[in-house]
Amino acid sequence: MSEHTEDAHHPSDRTYLKVGSLLFILTAVEIALYFVEDAFESDWSLYALIASLIFLSSIKFVLVVMYYMHLKWDDRMFTWFFLAGMFMAAVIILVMMAVYRYY
């Protein structure tokens, strides 16, 4: 693979590979945590697993959006568009879950 240096708009191949490696490692950690929790099967281990999975998957989500989808470098308007969609999706999830579970 030829060397490609980072410019103002796009990361280098090296950065892409680093992010890819991180995604691989974080996913491996998630799966390992799943099997470790399976051995305990207690309330506290379940809550710890859920918190850890949400944290790790959020990091993966942000890495892909920032580096592979270039939001770190691109026009801020794209970020606001995406955040608006994410915000409305979060509102839909929370409101509808509340409605269905409690009413």
């Binding site: 794209f78 969609g85 999706a89 579970r101």
Partner: peptide
């Protein structure tokens, strides 16, 4: 494309919501 992806966030948001419910 970003506007479409924002709308698709809401689409998958409803599916995830349904699953979580």
């Amino acid at each position: 494309m970003w506007a479409f992806l924002a709308s698709d966030c809401m689409f998958f948001g409803t599916l995830v919501m349904m699953y979580m419910v």
